[in-house]
Design a protein around this nucleic acid. Structure first.
Lengths: 208, 208
DNA sequence: GGATGTGAATCCATTCACAGCA
DNA sequence: TGCTGTGAATGGATTCACATCC
């Protein structure tokens, strides 16, 4: 394998592969082929092979990928081998739903800290987590938390982002509708629910 | 302008442009340049021009784009000129949050129907909407609803999707973690919160 | 035989550079 | 002069086709 920059799209698919591996029926075989994995996930098999090839020779020609080994390998690439704690900022409708969301556990990510601006919510305990005021964000570095989930109104998003970055946060999942300015070493992933929904009517038959 | 297939990415940016236009400070000028719009949204100006050029000559050389006209034009392209009603399927944590979400109004999309499986929730009225049982999905065509938001467990997603498609739904916003099989004339947009979050640790400094 | 890993080819999207118009 | 609209150039990602290895 030569050096190649790993495409962002490849990284985005790795968690999907991980879920595919988990859901692969244990039929006694220890290995899975790129074709089998591709079929489960509705992608193309060369895609799977190329994605995995960026990280060395993981598979065995003529056989496929050892399921256990591949699972461990992908977790290692994504740094999902040890549990990551994440801070949720904003305990509104969406924030509360995210806190209860069960889809993170598969990936060893756990929300264990919540910040809010509204004084009426501060101090409340939900799921064993005490809601703290936003000014406490600065303590994140001490607590070793480097991932944040932003679920607050757009108006305050850059302000809070600056606080997060100052506290050493390196990854932000942004549910806000605004663009966040961050230094190059901080990664932002945007989920813009409004925009996604607004695209759908375009694809409807005219007049629908 | 010659014929060109409009890239999906262009469509995805149009709602973003729309929001940018709304937030553009009214400084007396009736027009906005591709550069100004690009600056607000942190994209490149040739991108804005190319995106808009797919839909004809909307701007005026030497001047820019008439704000009112451009807004109307984008809304027309996206079919956002008349209000779209959408059905929410799944009134769990996420579903409830989405129902209260205020970010759709900007785009003239309104959730006015809710389906649930859990009998304890059926019949409850939230925000003037009576929660109905999933079997009632078949009535969507009669009600002229062609957009659905899927916020249910993955296991049931394909089943419910089939019901939606049969009821004439043409666009689905899928918060489920599974791939949905749909006919070619139905558009699915996926939001996979777990996967998005699972990507972040990869970008953190090693060991963080 | 059967599957991987990968250069080459293709496809798609972004960016550039500039002709043309107000 | 200033800004749009767009062919051409670039860059990135997917797909193909096949050499290679178990």
């Amino acid at each position: 394998m030569r050096y190649h920059k790993v495409p962002d799209e490849t990284i985005r698919r790795l968690p999907v592969y991980l879920r595919g591996l988990c859901s692969f029926p244990n039929n006694g075989s220890h290995s899975i082929s790129s074709q089998q994995l591709a079929d489960i996930l509705h992608v193309k098999s060369p895609q799977v092979r190329k994605d995995l090839s960026y990280f060395g020779d993981i598979g065995t020609p003529g056989v496929g990928y050892d399921i256990q080994k591949l699972t461990k390998h992908i977790r290692a690439i994504l740094q999902l081998n040890n549990v990551h704690c994440a801070a949720l900022v904003g305990y509104g409708n969406l924030g509360a739903a995210l806190l209860k969301y069960t889809g993170f556990g598969t990936f060893c990510i756990e929300i264990n800290t919540v910040f809010e601006k509204d004084p009426r919510k501060i101090g409340r305990v939900v799921r064993n987590i005490k809601i703290e005021e936003v000014s406490k964000i600065s303590s994140l570095s001490k607590r070793g938390i480097s991932i944040a989930i932003l679920a607050i109104p757009a108006a305050e998003s850059q302000d809070v982002t600056d606080k997060l970055v100052n506290a050493g946060v390196g990854g932000i999942l942004n549910f806000t509708s605004s663009y966040l300015s961050v230094p190059a070493n901080v990664k932002v992933i945007n989920i813009d629910i409004g925009v996604s929904l607004a695209c759908l009517p375009y694809y409807l038959p005219v007049g629908a």
